[in-house]
Amino acid sequence: MDTEFMRKFLPMYVKAAGLTLRLGAAGILLSLVVGAVCCWVRFAKVPVVRRVAGAYIELARNTPLLVQLFFLYFGLPKVGIKLSAETCAVTGLTFLGGAYMAEALRSGMEAVDPVQNEAGLCLGLTPAQNLRFVILPQALATAIPAIGANAVFLIKETSVFSAVALVDLMYVAKDLIGMYYKTDEALLMLTVAYLALLLPLSIAFSLLERRLRHAGFGRAV
């Protein structure tokens, strides 16, 4: 192992990890928003829109992110829609993640006993108050493990961003392999970088999950 080499190129990895984290975080947050909207549309049984949301979820869940990104980045400009690589990446990640988050939230909502809803209504809470104080806290607690798993999944999926010319961790590693043939060093740093990003996230969510389970409500999924 050439430690000198590794020290020299460490800043490139740090910068690339920053990009992964920034785009990943944006994608995860937007996914939660899209997921919440889809979930709401389906539970409120909004006509037509609910079917659209259902179709979107099926499309996004059954196609690879890489193909979605190729369409956005290489396809759309040909018909006059030019998006920056970063916009494409976040859009693609949100398109994919929104569907997964919608499913996580839906299973959380479904796990709340219907009698809880009735009990809240019987206390004279308005539907909005009931959602806020009674339903959502329980649904979210149940959905947290799935949301956490989705967050880890989405960060992992960012590894294809190099395909649309974003200088992410994969891009840097591939570059170093191609230019200097320092394969071992490049791959080691690549693996360590992803572990550094994902291990804390994964551990944080499993701790949160354990605490929620300890609180004793919500069913295990």
């Binding site: 009698v115 009990a119 209504l121 019987c122 004279g124 609180a215």
Partner: peptide, 30 residues
């Protein structure tokens, strides 16, 4: 519904709130 109280067969307490939280939710919020 604010004028008609109802208690169910199954335990309909809110599991994520303590007893005081369960008791005060309706009077405070509704």
């Amino acid at each position: 519904r604010r004028q008609i109280g109802m208690v169910f067969q199954s335990y309909d307490l809110f599991p994520h709130m303590d007893v005081l939280g369960n008791l005060s939710l309706g009077p405070v919020q509704a």
